[in-house]
Design a protein around this nucleic acid. Structure first.
Length: 945
DNA sequence: GAGCACTGC
């Protein structure tokens, strides 16, 4: 990994070629950066304007310069190798120049400028000599980062800082953000005079610092998130009993470690609060132990005991086979046994599958029972629970589905909605549902567990339920902000990584970027710059992580860095909540993430880079304090944090298609979705579109009631249009093919693998699968070929197909196939009948029809939106008159993704209620929606005004 | 000729 430093000799052959390589790479980088600058400029426009307002004395903000600057600097950098090689030569020249000048101008009156020039030259020469000396001495700490405490160096730094103020004043060009800087330094006593170096103007006079780092960013420490560390406070030394067997010893130590968790101290108070209140908001910080302990405490308090009224009824049936004692794990901790299925359950929801699984496993271990028995979990594709399960962890969506079979959730005595602050779509819907059932089930306990900031809001929603606060366990994290906004946050992040690497003690760095592309760019930049620095710096191991990265690459981030080296992890949002990496001491947070937006007016989705929320920023910062005190460097100003970031992210319910949720709620008998108890209501347009689509699909009738068809559609965990397609496949006797297509469509566009260095091969492979008729049939073709190889991994690899996605499609298909029994549809295969297959798709997606129009684009029939066929589609270079698309996405243009060609008449055949019937070759006109929908619209408008 | 944050059923 450590590249050798550039050869000092410029004449050297290899060096020349490598420098031309460098130039090429730089040119690429340059154009990349130019584009990015344009982009980020737009994003930061608001930031700029605010900054301008704030610093009125400074008419031009730094940002517009910066973007230009980085290009200029890149040019400089491309010559850096060359310059480095000339260092010795230059020093020598400088020496001679000085001697000459002193000799020549000995008796001449020099201008002030000339004098300064000579003075500067001597200063530079002195520095260079000093630097060389320092380099010869080993273990000298040249790059010191002041820590703000009053040691010798800090004083010096402070002095230098003050000089900078007066310099700026003297020059009459009140330095960038001068007032602000001074103010901040005065107000914040812990201010960091400079992180690495001084500012831009000062930097040019500081060749000593410039030598290692090309550019540096200034940070100011604003505050420290205090740590809460109760580690070991309750730890008791375990006495090892030699007669204890391994299992018992392990169990004992587990029990002891349970007592060290912060929540343990609050057990009694907590249980009292739960006893006294039906609904309790638990504000528990990460590491408090609430997720694993709460369920166990509740169990130990007897919340699983059968409902007494029920037990009397069921007493006669109390007979069950006892295959219970044939295991090592015989008894539950306090000797209670679960006797029959009338024991009540404690349910705990998690937003993520892995969390549900791993927490359940941990609790099973702590309770010394087998996972899947008393303690179990339920996630899609995998139900690891049984009749005797009393503590059940599950994903939020899973509990939502349970409402379908048990609308009052009678088998639960306690429901815990964990990680409620994440506000997933399913959690939000659950809020309304559980609040409702709590009203007529007074014995049901409801615990809403959330991180900070939100608790008050949850309390309000649940009729002012009391809030119980449990501290967490974490280390303090120092927060640093930049002094001025950074225009190019990738460049800024890269520079900060190097600053940390050069000035800070060892400890891994986590950088949050928005996507794969940014991660790859940052990776290349870091590689290039560390290569250039060569052995002057310690080894830096750069590791990318994002969800579509192959698993073997993902695992690498968990390997500890070798001795003396530092890991830098370039991550997407995946590292914010979904996975935890130990050993992170430094977090770099540029303050952006990608967010999906849904436009209900035309049904178009887009993925846009948006500023994160304060809650997100704090979550990210917290990642630095898991194992030791950490530092978080935010690449935005403290002012921006205070004034420009929202407190919380927009909840999912407000930015997603609600078709499936509306259908689910309808089938739960909730008729009035407009007045449903939302914590934050979805946009009116989204609800209206959902109603309209469900009506068009025949899932709702003219009275907006669920139809028989709608009830069958609700069985599938899919978008209503996909469910309808499946149900329609019965008519065309091609359910097997449709199941495959639907499964392939529901794994998000990640079937084809396209590595950067093999784009041509990958594209050829993809085109090889193209099937006449459209992309759906292409997907079917891919799946069937894969199936013919007996689901081979090798085949995927050879054909540039993502194995992980295929496997997922297979799982989805298996689940859907199982559900076919419930809706009583036979699995029939008719692969040759591509018309039948397309007609079935038409029955579900007639709503997504687009017609080629005169202006060379397509127009969607419903919203008259101009769209294009996506360049990845097999129909890209064809112009079918009518097409049906799976989805609309806004990227560089408005595109239809996954497209099939259809015939005009199919629309009237499959959706006669939707399309007006006229003469055969006449254009199909969309029928007017019935009055009921108009009424809904009116009601919606009333409610949302 | 484009470009896929992350989940979940």
């Amino acid at each position: 990994m450590a590249a050798s430093p550039p050869s000092p000799s410029f004449d050297n052959q290899t060096n020349q070629s490598s420098s031309s390589d460098d130039e090429e790479a730089n040119a690429r980088l340059e154009s990349d950066i130019r584009e990015r600058n344009e982009f980020t400029k737009r994003l930061r426009k608001r930031d700029d304007e605010q900054t301008k307002k704030k610093f009125k004395s400074e008419p031009v903000s730094r940002d517009p310069h910066r973007s230009k600057l980085s290009v200029e600097e890149l040019r400089k950098k491309s010559r850096r190798v060359y310059l480095a090689a000339r260092k010795d030569k230059k020093i020598h020249e400088l020496e001679e120049e000085l001697i000459d000048e002193e000799y020549l101008f000995k008796d001449v009156k020099l201008t002030k400028r000339e004098e300064e020039n000579i003075k500067f030259k001597r200063y530079a020469l002195d520095l260079a000599h000093e630097h060389e000396k320092a380099q010869q001495m080993e273990n000298i700490d040249r790059y010191h980062m002041p820590d703000g405490k009053s040691d010798e160096t800090s004083k010096n730094d402070r002095y230098r800082e003050d000089n900078r103020y007066s310099d700026a004043k003297a020059n009459g060009q009140a330095g960038q953000n001068f007032e602000q800087r001074k103010w901040e330094d005065e107000v914040i006593h812990t201010a960091l005079p400079h992180f690495g170096s001084l500012d831009k103007e000062a930097k040019s006079n500081q060749p000593k610092y410039d030598y290692i780092l090309d550019e540096e960013i200034q940070f100011v420490q604003q505050l420290t998130i205090p740590g809460v560390n109760e580690l070991l406070q309750y730890k008791e030394k375990s006495k090892i009993n030699e007669h204890e067997d391994e299992n018992k010893r392990k169990h004992r130590s587990l029990q002891e470690s349970r007592k060290t968790l912060p929540i343990y101290r609050f057990r009694e108070d907590l249980m009292n609060a739960i006893r006294d209140h039906q609904v309790l908001i638990i504000e528990g910080e990460t590491g408090s132990g609430k997720t694993t302990q709460l369920t166990q405490y509740l169990y130990e308090e007897g919340y699983c005991e059968p409902d007494t009224e029920n037990v009397e009824e069921e007493e006669e049936e109390e007979e069950e086979e006892e295959d219970y004692d044939d295991d090592d794990n015989i008894k539950l901790p306090n000797g209670k046994k679960k006797k029959e299925k009338k024991m009540m359950m404690i349910g705990c929801t998690q937003p993520r599958r892995v969390a549900a699984m791993s927490v359940a496993a941990r609790v099973a271990e702590e309770m010394n029972v087998k996972l899947g028995r008393e303690v179990g979990y339920a996630i899609r594709f995998e139900d690891c629970s049984s009749e005797r399960t009393i503590i059940k962890y599950m994903t939020d969506g899973m509990l939502l589905r349970e409402f379908l079979s048990e609308p009052d959730l009678a088998s639960y005595s306690v429901l815990i909605v964990d990680e409620a602050h994440e506000r997933t779509l399913h959690t939000d819907i659950l809020f309304g549902l559980v609040k409702d059932i709590a009203r007529f089930r007074p014995k049901l306990k409801l615990l809403i567990s959330s991180a900070t900031l939100d608790a008050e809001k949850f309390s309000q929603f649940f009729d002012d339920a009391p809030i119980f606060r449990i501290p967490g366990r974490r280390f303090p994290v120092d927060i640093y902000y930049t002094k001025a906004p950074e225009a190019d946050y990738i460049d800024a992040a890269v520079v900060t990584v190097l600053q940390i690497h050069v000035t800070q003690p060892l400890g891994d760095v986590l950088v949050f970027l928005t996507g794969q592309e940014e991660i790859e760019t940052a990776n290349e930049m870091l590689l290039e710059r560390t290569r250039r620095l060569g052995t002057k710096i310690k080894e830096l191991i750069i590791l990318p992580i994002y969800s579509t990265l192959p698993s073997d690459m993902q695992i690498r981030i968990f390997e500890p860095a070798p001795l003396g080296a530092r890991k830098v992890i370039l991550a997407t949002n995946i590292a914010e909540t979904s996975l935890t990496i130990d050993g992170i001491h430094y977090v770099i947070d540029p303050g952006f993430c990608k967010q999906k937006t849904y436009n209900a007016r035309n049904g178009m989705e887009a993925l846009t880079i948006t500023p994160i929320s304060k809650a997100s920023a704090n979550q990210r910062a917290g990642r630095a304090g898991r194992v030791a005190p950490g530092k978080c460097f935010r690449l935005y100003t403290s002012w921006a944090y205070q004034h420009e970031l929202d407190d919380n992210s927009i909840p999912e319910i407000q930015r997603t298609n609600l078709g499936n949720v509306v259908l689910l709620l309808k089938s739960l008998g909730i008729n009035d979705l407009v007045n449903f108890d939302y914590m934050d209501p979805p946009p009116m347009e989204t609800l209206r579109l959902a109603f309209e689509q469900l009506y068009a699909l025949g899932a709702l009738n003219h009275k907006v009631e669920l139809t028989k068809l709608g009830r069958r559609m609700a069985e599938f965990p899919l978008d209503p249009m996909l469910s309808k397609t499946i149900l329609a496949s019965e008519t065309y006797k091609c359910s097997a093919e449709i199941l495959t297509i639907v499964s392939m469509l529901s794994v998000n566009n990640s079937i084809f693998f396209r590595p950067k260095d093999k784009t041509l091969l990958a594209d050829t492979a993809r085109q090889g699968f193209f099937t006449p008729g459209g992309d759906h049939l292409t997907l079917l073709n891919v799946y069937n070929q894969w199936k013919d190889t007996n689901y081979s991994t090798q085949w995927c690899y050879e054909n540039f197909i993502q194995f992980r996605s295929m496997n997922r499609a297979r799982q989805v298909r298996d689940q859907l196939e199982a559900l076919m029994e419930r809706v009583e549809i036979e699995i029939q295969s008719n692969p040759a009948d591509t018309i039948g297959i397309r007609k079935a798709i038409c029955s579900g997606f007639f709503y997504h029809t687009a017609k080629f129009s005169k202006n060379g684009m397509y127009k969607t029939v419903r919203h008259q939106q101009s769209v294009l066929i996506h360049p990845n589609s097999c129909l890209f270079d064809q112009i079918p008159r009518y097409v049906i698309y799976f989805e609309l996405v806004l990227t560089t243009k408005e595109y239809m993704r996954q497209v099939i060609e259809i015939e005009n008449e199919w629309l009237r055949e499959t959706a006669p209620h939707f399309y007006k019937t006229k003469k055969l070759d006449d254009d199909n006109k969309v029928k007017k929606m019935p009055k009921v929908l108009g009424k809904i619209k009116a009601e919606l408008e009333r409610n949302y005004s």
